[in-house]
Computed example of a mutant assay.
Amino acid sequence: MATAVSSRWEVTDVAPKIGSAIHTDKATLLSGERASEIRELMERRGVIVFPEINLTDDEQIAFTHTLGTFAHEDGEAAGGKDAVYPITMDSSINPIAEYLKGAFFWHLDGTMSDKPILASIMSARALAPVGGETDFCNTYAAWDELPEDEKAQIEGLQVDHAMWRSQLYVNPEPSYALLQQWQSRGKNTLPLVWKHRSGRKSLVLGATALSVLGKDPTESESLLVRLRDWATQERFSYRHTWKLGDMVIWDNTGTMHRALPYDHKSGRLMMRTKLEGEEAFA
C-alpha cells in the first residue's frame, strides 16, 4: 500500500479503492495547515482514519471548522452553539435513538435535501465489547467500474427517496399513525448517477431509495438492490474496527456507510460533527 511520510504526518492507504489513515498529532490537525490536503484526500479516498487521536469535544469542533462550514442540522445545535452530536442507542443521552437505528443499513446522509452534507466526522468515546464496526463503500469507484453498456442504461434515471422507506427496514409493520408521521416528511427525487462539478460521477443509492421513476415495482427494486450489491462489494469497501479515541471523517457525497450490529445496552458512544454541503445533487 502507498505511503507518504513527512514530519508528524504519515498517510497510508487502508484498502485498495477506499480509505486512508493519517498518523499525526493534535497540534497539526488543529492548526489547519493540512486542511487542504485532508479535503483532497477525503474526496479522492472517501474515508480518512485518524487512529487514537483522542480529540476532545471542543477540539473536534475546532478541527471541523478548519475544513469548512460547521453544519447545524435538526436537533444537532445546542442553543445555537456549535456542538458535537451523540450517536448512541441510549435514549437518555439521545432522545431520538430509535430513529438512529436506520444507520444499520447502507445509506448516505441528506437524501431528503437538495444539497446533502459534505462530510461527517466521528470520534469513538465508548465501544461495544462485540460489534459496532462501521462499513464504508466508495460510490465513485462503483460507478467507474460498471460496464459501459450498463452506465448508458442507468445514467439518466431518477429515483424517489423517502425517509419512511429506511424506517421500514427497522420497523416493517408500523402503525398507520406512525407511517403517516414518517410520510409527512415527503419524498425527494434524485438522479441515480450524480454528475459532480469535479467531472466525476457517483451512484446515489441506499436505504432511502424508494423507486426508480418509469419502472414497475419489481424492475425498480431489482435494479436498486443489484446496484447496492455492486457498490458494496468487498473491492469497493472498507470496514473500520474502532479503537477508543479514533476519529474518522468521510465524504458523504461519494460514499455510503452503515453501522454493524452491537448490543444496544453496551454504552457504545460516538460523537459526530458535520460539514455543510457545498454541492447539490445533479
Rank of each mutant, 00 (worst) to 15 (best):
V47F: 04
V170G: 10
E33T: 14
L29H: 01
M247E: 01
T189V: 15
N171K: 15
S202N: 10
I61G: 01
A77H: 05
V212W: 05
A97G: 05
Y169K: 14
L275Q: 04
D109Q: 05
H196K: 15
R185W: 09
A280N: 14
K151Y: 08
E133C: 08
A103Q: 11
V130G: 03
A62D: 10
I117V: 15
K26W: 03
I18D: 09
T208P: 01
A35L: 02
W242K: 11
Q233E: 14
S6H: 04
R239H: 01
Q153P: 00
V248N: 05
G80C: 14
E148K: 12
M270G: 06
Q233R: 15
A142L: 02
D246N: 14
R34A: 07
W106R: 02
E278V: 09
V130P: 04
T218P: 00
Y85T: 14
S6I: 07
G79W: 09
A83Y: 06
D251T: 06
S92I: 00
T208R: 11
D57L: 08
E219F: 05
Y176N: 11
A35P: 02
R235S: 10
L224H: 13
V84W: 02
M256Q: 11
A78K: 15
L55V: 06
G79Q: 07
A119V: 10
R8W: 02
P116H: 11
E145R: 12
R239N: 06
E145F: 10
H107F: 06
K81N: 13
L30Q: 05
V130W: 04
E76G: 05
S20E: 10
G68F: 01
D109E: 13
E52H: 13
L118G: 03
L213G: 00
R228F: 02
E76R: 14
G75E: 01
L223K: 03
D135G: 15
L227P: 04
I154S: 10
D160Y: 13
A97R: 05
I53P: 00
T189K: 13
I38A: 09
Y85C: 05
L55K: 08
P116T: 11
N252C: 00
A142R: 01
N54H: 12
I117E: 12
D229Q: 06
P261K: 04
R239E: 01
D160T: 14
T56Y: 04
L118Q: 08
M42C: 11
H65I: 04
I249Q: 00
A119M: 10
E73H: 13
G245F: 12
T189R: 15
D74W: 09
